[in-house]
C-alpha cells in the first residue's frame, strides 16, 4: 500500500464570542472555545496508481485530510504512512516525492514570467538538468503552455494559470499528486483538457492521484474510486457505480406525447408522473429492462419523442448528503 491512514483524528479549536447583548464587550476578556472534530477516526488505504475522488460537503474535512497527507498538519492521534514515511515527521523528504495543486492558491510567482518559476522549482527540487529538460518538454507539450512561458503569471487567465500550476506540480515527477479543486472556475474546454491530461498522466506514469472537488463530472470522468466524507467520518468508500446504485437506483424515461393521455399503470415501474403532454416513468433497471418499457410505451401511447435519463450525479450526491444528514 502506498498510502495508509489509520484512525486519524484531528480537532480544531474555534473561539466564539459570548452571546447576549454585551457579548462583544465580554468577548474582549473571556473567550469561549469550541472544539470541532475535523476528522474522526479516518481509516483508508490507497494503492499505487489509483485515481481517487474525495468528496464531501464544505467543511467536511477534505482539506484537512489532504493537509495531513501532504505533511503540513500533524494529526492529534492515529497514524499516517505514505511510501513508508510519516509525512509530518519527515516533511522535507516526503514533499520532494509528492505534488500538490491547490485550485484556489497559487504556487507560481505572481510578478515574474512562468519560466522563472519553473527554473526556481528545478533548483528547489534539485532536479538533474537532463531529467528536467525532458520532463519540461513533455509537460509543455501535453499542457500546451509553450506560448505562456514568457508571460508574468499575473497576466495569465485562470485556465492558463491552472495549466501552469499543474505543470509546476509535476515537474519533479512526483509519485503522488494531491489535487484540491483543480477545476474550480474553469471553462468547459479547459476542464476537459485538464481531465484528459490528468487521465493520461495517471495512465502513463502511474501517478497516484487524490482529487477533492465539488464538480461531480470530474469524479465521474476521472475516478474509479470515490470516498465520501462528512462530519469528519468516512461514509462511503468504493466505486462510483455502486454509489449510484445505492443512492439512485432509479432511471427515468421521459416521453413526450402528441396529445394528453390519462395515466395507467405499467407493470414493474416504480412511479409515473404526468406533466402536461409529458410522461415521466421511473423504474429500476435491475428489475425491468429498459427496452420492455419502451416497447409498452410505443404500443400504447401516441409518442412524439422519448429520452432515457439517469439521475443526475449532482442530485444523487445532494440526496446522499441529505440522507446522511450532513
Amino acid at each position: 500500500m502506498q498510502i495508509e491512514l489509520k484512525e486519524i483524528c484531528k480537532n480544531y479549536k474555534v473561539s466564539q464570542r459570548p452571546e447576549g447583548r454585551f457579548g462583544m464587550l465580554k468577548g474582549a476578556f473571556v473567550r469561549n472555545t469550541k472544539t470541532i472534530k475535523a476528522l474522526d477516526n479516518i481509516t483508508f488505504n490507497i494503492r499505487q496508481g489509483e485515481l481517487v475522488g474525495y468528496i464531501g460537503p464544505n467543511g467536511a474535512g477534505k482539506s484537512t485530510t489532504v493537509k495531513i497527507m501532504s505533511g503540513i498538519l500533524t494529526p492529534d492521534s492515529g497514524s499516517c504512512t505514505i511510501m513508508n514515511r510519516i509525512p509530518y515527521k519527515e516533511r522535507k523528504s516526503h514533499v520532494s516525492e509528492i505534488g500538490v495543486v491547490f485550485g484556489q492558491r497559487s504556487q507560481l510567482w505572481w510578478d515574474v514570467p512562468v519560466n522563472d518559476s519553473f527554473d526556481l522549482l528545478k533548483d528547489i527540487y534539485d532536479i538533474p538538468t537532463i531529467r528536467y529538460k525532458k520532463r519540461f518538454d513533455e509537460l509543455i507539450e501535453a499542457l500546451s503552455i509553450s506560448d505562456l512561458l514568457k508571460t508574468p503569471v499575473r497576466q495569465l487567465s485562470l485556465g492558463q494559470r491552472m495549466r501552469c500550476e499543474i505543470a509546476s506540480a509535476l515537474l519533479h515527477s512526483p509519485k503522488i499528486l494531491f489535487l484540491d479543486e483543480p477545476t474550480i472556475g474553469l471553462d468547459a474546454v479547459s476542464k476537459l483538457a485538464l481531465r484528459d491530461f490528468l487521465k493520461n498522466e495517471n495512465h502513463k506514469n502511474g501517478v497516484t492521484m487524490i482529487l477533492t472537488t465539488h464538480d461531480m463530472d470530474d469524479i465521474e470522468s476521472l475516478c474509479s474510486r470515490v470516498m465520501v466524507i462528512g462530519h469528519g467520518n468516512l461514509l462511503y468508500d468504493g466505486n462510483l457505480d455502486m454509489l449510484k446504485q445505492q443512492y439512485a437506483p432509479l432511471c427515468n424515461i421521459k416521453a413526450s406525447l402528441d396529445k394528453k393521455t390519462e395515466k395507467f399503470h405499467i407493470e414493474g415501474t416504480e412511479d409515473i408522473k404526468v406533466v402536461g403532454n409529458t410522461w415521466n416513468v421511473l423504474y429500476d433497471p435491475s428489475k425491468i429492462p429498459t427496452h420492455s418499457i419502451v416497447e409498452i410505451l410505443t404500443k400504447k401511447l401516441p409518442l412524439k419523442d422519448i429520452v432515457i435519463e439517469q439521475q443526475d450525479i449532482d442530485e444523487i450526491i445532494a440526496q446522499m448528503y441529505k440522507e446522511m444528514s450532513l
Partner: peptide, 21 residues
C-alpha cells in the same frame, strides 16, 4: 508583502509543500 500575504491567507500551506527549510 509576499510573505505577509502567505501568512494571512494560509498560503503557508503551499510553501510547506516544498522540500525546503
Amino acid at each position: 508583502k509576499d510573505i505577509l500575504r502567505k501568512i494571512t491567507s494560509g498560503d503557508v500551506a503551499v510553501e510547506l509543500c516544498r522540500p525546503l527549510d
